[in-house]
């Protein structure tokens, strides 16, 4: 039954066995093809298994079309260095901590350092662990090390 598969899937996730998690998510999807939890688990497990191409192909498959994968898709594009495409995707997203962090990392890679530093300034209120490391990188690269 599907409940047993999800129990197994959950165990693999808790043990960081991401390739195994993908296999069990596929087993769920063979029974319940559009299952949103299984599709989401598969995408996240592929990303965590460092299979960015695989994650993108699931995100872009017709079965995933009802699911909002904008952030995950933007993240995958960032990992593939398709920076402008990733940035474009984030424009239609609400400004939450995740999308702002990703945006700042993309801007850093694009060398748009003033814009990058501006996003980090806005994020400072959110108390994100290790944020200052990236903030400092942006400031140094932007030639604002004195701040």
């Amino acid at each position: 039954p599907i409940e047993d598969l999800f129990t197994t899937l959950n165990r693999h996730i808790e043990q960081s066995e991401f390739e195994q998690a993908v296999k069990v998510a596929d087993q769920v999807l063979s029974i319940a093809p559009g299952d949103e939890d299984a599709i989401r688990c598969k995408v996240v497990a592929l990303i965590k298994a460092d299979n960015i191409d695989g994650a993108l192909s699931v995100i872009q498959s017709p079965k995933s079309s009802p699911i909002d994968f904008s952030y995950f898709k933007a993240y995958c594009l960032y990992r593939q260095n398709k920076l402008n495409e990733a940035l474009e995707l984030l424009r239609s997203q609400e400004n939450n901590s995740a999308s702002m962090l990703l945006k700042s990392q993309i801007l850093y890679r694009l060398g748009e350092l003033d814009a990058c530093v501006d996003v980090y300034r806005k994020l400072q209120k959110s108390k994100i662990d290790s944020l200052e490391i990236n903030f400092v990188a942006g400031l140094i690269s932007a030639g604002k090390a004195s701040e």
Partner: peptide, 21 residues
């Protein structure tokens, strides 16, 4: 080059499967 951490990765999370097991 200064170190940059991939903090965006920390927001790639699994859905809760609590109600599916």
């Amino acid at each position: 080059n200064p170190i940059v951490i991939d903090l965006a990765y920390n927001y790639i999370d699994f859905p809760s499967l609590e109600n599916r097991m």
